[in-house]
């Protein structure tokens, strides 16, 4: 894995409501540079929404978001999102473009690289995820696992300081999950700052440096994976773990 110039990400007292629905009720999340934070919790607990607020796909109602100690709420949100890569449950590759074009698009249009240079860098990223040989096919001709690896390459190509994974393996067939998780673990080892929303308790326990358990728009419990998985303090976390493990 290449070296990453990763950053430290902090969310402070984040609130978000959709009408009368209070989705995030004061979330604190701190991810130290080069570490991986996993966020677990039942469906509808606000995990995925939290990611979208932290890269300002959705603007928070209250609270602050800091990258390397500096608030980013007043920055141009498009520039902020160039610094935070995101990988989605449904991959969301651009179906009208080839695999390599998917990776090169933002390099050309946002980083303003020339066609050749963007292509070269995109191929390097594809090589990294083991899919260089698929550069010229359309995403529809790839398996789910391959598509998700391309999506990871697309995000990494922008050389982000932080990577978000939103249930990146939930839509994959079981036999394809491990390939993607292995790649994510590689990134974590390589020193990428990562926030991983996941239902994969094995990954959360073995790869992440901290675990945050959310329910009902609140952080119920957070800490080191060993503590979270072996000595849960709250009843809510205990019952969640007994349901999923």
């Amino acid at each position: 894995m290449t070296e990453f110039t990763s950053g430290t990400l902090t969310g402070k007292n984040i609130h978000l409501s959709f009408g009368s629905n209070h989705v995030l009720r004061g979330i604190d999340l701190h991810v130290e540079k080069g570490t991986t934070a996993s966020v677990i919790g039942p469906s509808g607990s606000g995990k995925s929404t939290l990611l979208r607020v932290m890269n300002r796909l959705i603007e928070p109602d209250d609270g602050d978001i800091l990258l390397d100690g500096r608030s980013v709420l007043k920055d141009n949100p498009d520039e902020l999102r160039q610094r935070i890569g995101m990988v989605f449950q449904q991959f969301n590759l651009f179906p009208h473009k080839t695999v390599v074009e998917n990776v090169a698009l933002a390099l050309r249009k946002l980083k303003k690289l020339g066609k050749e240079e963007a292509h070269t860098q995109a191929m390097e990223q594809l090589d990294l995820v083991g899919l260089k040989h698929k550069a010229d096919v359309r995403p529809a001709n790839l398996s789910g696992g391959q598509q998700q690896r391309v999506a990871i390459a697309r995000a990494l190509a922008m050389r982000p300081e932080v990577m978000f994974f939103d249930e990146a393996t939930s839509a994959l067939d079981p036999e394809l999950v491990k390939g993607v998780l292995a790649l994510m673990a590689d990134l974590a080892k390589g020193g990428m700052t990562m926030v991983v929303v996941t239902h994969e308790m094995g990954f959360s326990r073995n790869v992440s440096d901290s675990v945050t358990f959310m329910d009902g728009g609140l952080v119920v419990e957070s800490g080191h994976p060993d503590q979270i998985f072996t000595e849960p303090r709250t009843e809510r976390l205990k019952s969640f773990l007994s349901d999923v493990l």
């Binding site: 498009d78 999102r81 935070i84 995101m86 989605f88």
Partner: peptide, 27 residues
């Protein structure tokens, strides 16, 4: 066009206008 397309494009750092022009409208 699926909403995820706009979301993925915006997550890469494209503005709403660029996302529509490069990703959503062509599809």
């Amino acid at each position: 066009v699926e909403k995820g397309q706009l979301e993925a494009s915006r997550a890469l750092g494209f503005s709403y206008g660029s996302s529509m022009r490069l990703v959503v409208v062509p599809q």
